[in-house]
């Protein structure tokens, strides 16, 4: 039992990261109805820009953080222009596939300018272990969970307590009606993309400083983990992204312990598939959403 509990704690720690990455992903999906596959690469470009500034100008962590956010936002803006804004709004497949092309492009840019497999990244804090009885907690992991909760809460409040958030939800529900009531669509879409990039930048910074190293595989890792996390609990749902991240982390940690690394991804993807088939709206999807998405799936 203790082992299972410890696995769950470990799963929560890594799940906090998945949740953070999935938050940005889900915001874009929720408001823009766009699966931006280049999301992870935008974050990776931001993180590597931070590393470059650190290596060349010995910037401290505070400034590295801002560089990462800035470059992630610029990269996000670039992707939004190329893969979303300039394409017809009903061309969902074209939007997703074009973001795949940009994903590959951004990954190659990083690999060209950063030829080594991995680079060191300065630590934010010394990662200490805290023992509560036989259970082990990482200080850094707890911090990530707190930040994740705060960010999710802030986004939730922003969406439900501000006029801009109301406009975002309106665009998400019915873009045509939103335009008729005078909502500035381009501003909302751009704002969504920027907020998602900022969240991604924060998550990327925290991940890099927690691992104290970053590899050029980072973008791919972010994209597929956050895609699964987002889909598990509810596409386009803030609570769903957080829950999905945590669930994915816990399942991975337990399957790693009980079945081994070979089966970990197999179990995650199987769960991902089952959720998509049985509950197309995700674990937190309402009955109405489930029906609607199942109808879309049947064509």
């Amino acid at each position: 039992m203790m082992i299972f509990l410890q696995n769950c704690i470990d799963g929560f720690m890594i799940g906090g990261f998945y949740a953070l990455f999935a938050l940005g992903f889900t915001l874009m999906f929720g408001v823009m109805k766009w699966t931006n596959l280049a999301y992870g690469s935008c974050i990776m470009l931001g993180v590597f820009s931070g590393i470059w500034m650190h290596l060349h100008f010995q910037l401290d962590l505070f400034w590295i953080f801002f560089v990462i956010i800035l470059i992630t936002v610029i990269a996000g803006y670039y992707v939004e222009r190329l893969c979303y804004r300039w394409l017809p709004k009903k061309a969902f497949m074209a939007m997703m596939v074009s973001s795949f092309a940009i994903w590959m492009q951004l990954d190659e840019i990083v690999r060209i300018y950063f030829p080594s497999r991995s680079y060191p990244f300065p630590r934010l804090m010394d990662n200490d272990l805290m023992m509560i009885g036989p259970l082990m907690f990482k200080a850094e992991g707890l911090l990530i969970l707190v930040i994740c909760g705060l960010l999710a809460g802030t986004i939730f409040l922003f969406l439900y307590k501000t006029r801009y958030g109301l406009a975002m939800r309106a665009v998400s529900e019915d873009p045509v009606a939103s335009r008729y009531v005078g909502i500035n669509m381009p501003s909302i879409l751009l704002g969504t993309s920027i907020i998602a990039s900022v969240i991604g930048g924060i998550a990327g910074f925290l991940m890099a400083t927690s691992d104290a190293q970053v590899s050029t595989e980072f973008g791919l890792w972010v994209t597929y983990k956050s895609l699964i996390a987002m889909t598990l609990a509810g596409l386009g749902s803030i609570r769903g992204a957080v829950l999905g991240g945590i669930i994915l982390g816990v399942i991975e940690a337990n399957s790693l312990w009980y079945l081994g690394a070979e089966y970990r991804d197999l179990v995650s993807f199987m769960l991902f598939f089952i959720v998509l088939v049985i509950l197309p709206g995700g674990l937190l999807g309402t009955a109405k959403e489930q029906k609607a998405r199942a109808a879309v799936r049947r064509g």
Binding site: D10, I14, A253
Partner: peptide, 9 residues
């Protein structure tokens, strides 16, 4: 695997 970032388990 080579993409793993968490090794606590």
């Amino acid at each position: 695997s080579m993409r793993d970032t968490s090794f606590s388990v």
